[in-house]
Design a binder for these strands. Structure first.
Lengths: 287, 287
DNA sequence: ACGTTTTGGATGAAATATGTACCATGGAGA
DNA sequence: TCTCCATGGTACATATTTCATCCAAAACGT
């Protein structure tokens, strides 16, 4: 084999479905991607993609190669993790992934605190609702709000994250009948839990919170968002609705890295302290 | 991971034990190998080798990475084989590996014949006593003379290759007592089978044949070598000694390739015809 | 102890890979 | 039908990598 690195490009093309898309993912130009794929095809002696209207389509050979390329990728990723775990210094970088809403709603201050406590650790904060891929080391530590606790990763459940019904003071001052309902469809679609007319659908909790804040209606929000927002008010007509769990996770391979260790320990302590807030037991924000 | 191709260089260094050795294996300069290894070490954040007197020595991290690099290599090799098997054209290249002695002693003519019959197939002939690595596609088809028939590869045993006792006309004309013995130590060490004094040790059958040919003594040779050499004469004092088997082999993945097919079929026929010679049943050479 | 050989590192020159244009094509939407 | 946008291919200028060397250090054989 001529150049193993071309499998990286190959995988990007299969995932993005286009040369240009792969180039964007990889941070290089489409000309390079095109040449590299052509080079790979030349050394293999057969083409791997067919240029179709709906994008780059794998040939039969390409399909047979795909799982092998993923194996190769997996090997490279594991090397990455091993090297990271072998890096025993406290100085360096850790990548933390968490949802934007959790960061702005609750964890902004504790994370600031961590950065002050460990100034030699550079914290890369990745605000992403999509779960970052721990295996590929897109993130070293993730705070995941989920219903399905993962069994492959290493870490623990740090809290429940129930929903409650919220609205704004403005809305309550002039409450219409029937109620206006702000739905969240990013989670499994939720219907109003009280008689109400759906007026909006938000695909993220922060967006839903903003809609509710502006007085457009009421809706279910995670308690950590609703309770920490001074403009929102919990509506007592419905109680807490058990929904998600909060997990702090890392990859088995890198759990021994000291930076991962201190970050996770810090997060465990943080969630110990904030668990009442997350679980909706403490109505006042403790920012 | 920055550049997956560096694992290829990494593996070469582990195998050759030195930067320069790896460079020679890879056909590039040692400066490049040095820079690539340094680059890999930089991206991983830890060193992989230690410069020791006995060469490049793997660090603990390097040792942990080694099996992963081999996994990656295995994936690349399998891609290679898949692509080769998907290459359904009769025109192209096939790599055939066989021992130098078998080629010059017996198979020179039949292989010429094959090249004439299939002029569109380019035959890469690799004369090597070391078994070429089928998995890595160092060879597509190998003729292996062995005692341990492999079970992973695809192919069949085409003949036995017994030993017999040979000497030269010259030697017989003035036969000393006790006899002079030319030993072959490339195989499991062989002692004289008749009372004789060991005068030489050859580490290859062709070398042993040359020594015997020059009248320095007598010794055991594969029949395909002894019987086809007009200057040698079989000594009837001992009969045939069962020794090796001849196998024609390819990799499971590429057995469907048409060029591999026709080459193997051709070789099967060739050995069908030459089996008496190989097995020492036909005293006159049939070159 | 000496020269010889092999090792790995450093540095201008050459070769290769990449980026930046530009182009033609083909849908999607007006 | 038209434009508009995105796609992939190609040519040339630019960056980067690799090569050919020279160098110092260490190991080996004499």
């Amino acid at each position: 084999m001529e150049n193993w690195d071309n499998f990286r490009i190959f995988l990007s093309v299969t995932r993005s479905g286009s040369i240009r898309g792969a180039a964007k993912m990889l941070g290089i130009t489409h000309a390079t991607v095109s040449r590299r794929i052509k080079f790979l095809e030349d050394t293999l002696g057969s083409s791997l993609f067919e240029r179709k209207r709906e994008g780059q389509c794998l040939t039969p050979l390409g399909q047979r190669i795909l799982p092998l390329a993923k194996t190769i990728e997996g090997g490279c990723a594991e090397v990455d993790r091993l090297a990271f775990s072998a890096d025993t210094g406290l100085a360096g970088t850790v990548k933390l992934s968490l949802s934007e809403s959790l960061y702005s709603g609750l964890l902004h201050a504790p994370i600031d605190d961590f950065m002050q406590r460990y100034p030699m650790i550079k914290l890369d904060i990745i605000a992403s609702d999509l779960m970052s891929n721990l295996a590929q080391r897109e993130a070293d530590v993730v705070i995941r709000i989920t219903r399905n606790p993962p069994d492959t990763a290493y870490g623990r459940k740090v809290a429940n994250s129930p929903l409650a019904l919220y609205t704004s003071h403005k809305y309550l001052a002039n409450r219409p009948a029937p109620d206006r309902w702000i739905a969240m469809d990013y989670a499994p679609a939720r219907k109003p839990v009280i008689p109400a007319q759906v007026v909006a659908n938000a695909n993220s909790p922060t967006l839903a919170a903003q809609l509710i804040r502006s007085g457009r209606g009421m809706g279910l929000l995670p308690c950590y968002l609703g309770d920490t927002d001074p403009e929102l008010e919990r509506v007592s007509e419905v109680g807490l609705i058990s929904d998600m769990q909060v997990w702090v996770l890392t990859h088995e391979d890198i759990k021994v890295n000291p930076r991962v260790r201190v970050l996770m320990d810090h997060l465990y302590q943080v969630f110990e302290k904030y668990r009442p807030t997350l679980e909706g037991l403490k109505m006042t924000a403790s920012v």
